[in-house]
Design a binder for these strands. Structure first.
Lengths: 325, 325
DNA sequence: CGGTTAATGTCAACCGTATGACATGTAAAA
DNA sequence: TTTTACATGTCATACGGTTGACATTAACCG
């Protein structure tokens, strides 16, 4: 690969001028710029980003740590983040933690060693800054992991309320909440539950809470868990699930066991992953605006130097009504 | 951040020794190694990967270009690749091309500028090397894009045959093939179709082929396309879909229109994404061993210098029988 | 015509690590 | 005691690009 120096020689200028053109184009005469660009084309020159990063003490990478890439919600997050990261001239370093704290810490340290411009974390770990410090902005999404780390979430509390209100308005009386996993403090799902419970109680309905110890998002045992719960609560007529996959599992169980959805049981999911629309019956759900969140998060990192970063930012959610209610 | 030099000073050795310890530990005395390690701990030292990469003219990044991150099959690919890449001490640079040739070329050029150790591409573009050259191994997965680029695929031809044979063995007589998108030369899906057609014809059954011009994997118009097709082919009793999502859409349509699956219509998908098991009825499908492919591809890149790379490698597929047949 | 300004050159240091060549010192083996 | 091997130091250069300080040149203005 050609280097800056070769380009400079070919264009009859010095490396300083070429470098200036790349970094402060205003300082260079238009005709010189053209000459240099021609030389670059001739030599098929491309700046070595590694060398640039070293010199600037900062790379163009943005690290994204997610618990899973297969889970449809995070897949959506990844795709959306990638788009915004690329649109801003940065590159995505993807890290899949599989919910393991050890891995998250390793990833953090790796990202530091690579001088990333920022880290986006959708994480399990309560406060990772206790383990690894990093000289770049860190933003957590989907949950609040520490008072020192900016968090960007969607309005889970309202999401829970909206679900409750819809079920009530449809005439449900015995309403359950299905928890997709272990409830962690600060985790978005727990706010969903709180909003949901509050709205029900305001209408004099006592929520029936299902929860279990499974901490993976996709589990082969969902059917068993659902079966066990419905055995003791056969009479529920409404269910709010903390994510769409759980909702799909519930509908699947219901269909198999001759329970009509939505006739006998109305089901609401959360996230609005592609599956929700594709399922049969299609699933009513609360959509998190992953797109808005991604846009905001990436912009925040890119303009970190210029703008202050709010410690918490909340985006609205939207009820998407489909066949399952 | 501390530098090599500071560590060396603290440990009472020179940078050369420290660098040697990091790269050729055999040359350094165990007790010296301990002293240096202690100094590193004291200073919270971490090698600057950027500087390393510059010096070595090669980074630890592996680029993965996929058309989509949301699509469940590619989500599976991403997760699997990430695991193997990380396990080998490399880092994943994720690129989502959205099927756009222009983007693929940009990504390629970006990866080159970042001196990646290798590129894995699940791509649309027929032969990207015509546009961008790169001094690193390139491997295409899921399809053959050029005679000059190693390809790693699963045995799509057999997959198609297996689907055909299952439908025949279940007694289907009027069997259709649903194509998820435009058929591109060399694309894995076209081999699936060929295997499928061949197996049917060998049994004296003429396949009914559905295909359309949609080139996105997830489209809102699948229902319309299916409806149009079934209008003129209402009598089919077996269907092989080129991917699981299409199979889900077909089942959804059938369910909505009172066609019993598998009673009146048996459906087979392809890929075995999570959805296949979750759907109701669960979907019989051909599983591609994404795990094996990922493992092989990443190992090939990591050991590129040592081993020759086969121009084509094919992994077996597996029939997963579920409720939809 | 002197003064100002814009465009570029010159020079050099720096980012943090790798590495080759060669010298030195030390301890074990002959 | 001499030889040999090993461990480390010393020195210097390279990787490719950035940047600040300052000098030079030519063109423009009043």
């Amino acid at each position: 690969m050609a280097t800056l120096k070769e380009v400079a020689d070919k264009a009859g200028v010095t490396v300083t001028t070429v470098s200036r053109m790349l970094n402060k184009p205003d300082m260079v005469h238009p005709s010189t710029i053209r000459r240099i660009q021609q030389a670059m084309r001739d030599l098929d020159y491309q700046p070595n980003e590694i060398a640039r990063s070293l010199s600037k003490k900062m790379s163009n990478f943005i690290g994204l740590i997610v618990p899973s890439a297969r889970n449809a919600f995070f897949a959506k997050v990844i795709e959306s983040m990638e788009r915004h990261i690329t649109a801003n001239g940065y590159k995505l370093l993807l890290c899949v933690s599989n919910h393991e704290r050890r891995k998250e810490i390793e990833y953090f340290s790796m990202l530091r060693a690579n001088k990333v411009a920022g880290v986006i974390i959708a994480s399990h770990t309560q406060d990772i800054t206790q383990s690894v410090s990093i000289d770049a902005p860190i933003i957590s999404i989907d949950r609040i992991i520490s008072p020192h780390i900016s968090a960007v979430c969607s309005d889970n509390f309202s999401g829970g309320r909206m679900a409750a209100e819809l079920l009530i308005s449809k005439g449900c009386k015995r309403i359950a909440y299905f928890n997709g996993g272990i409830t962690l403090k600060g985790m978005s799902a727990s706010l969903r539950q709180q909003g949901f419970e509050q709205a029900l109680r305001q209408q004099g309905i006592e929520p029936i809470i299902q929860s279990h110890r499974e901490d993976r998002f996709i589990s082969m045992k969902y059917q068993d868990i659902i079966a066990a719960f419905l055995e003791t609560h056969a009479d529920i007529d409404g269910a709010f699930c903390s994510n769409d996959i759980l909702a799909a599992e519930l509908i699947r169980y219901a269909t198999k066991n001759g329970i009509d959805v939505p006739g006998q049981l109305r089901v609401i999911g959360y996230d609005d992953i592609d599956l929700a629309e594709l399922y049969s019956p299609s699933i009513t759900t609360i959509r998190q605006s992953v797109e808005d969140i991604s846009h905001f998060v990436v912009e925040s990192i890119v303009h970190f130097e210029d703008r202050p970063m709010p410690s918490q930012t909340i985006f609205p959610v939207q009820l998407i009504e489909r066949e399952s209610t």
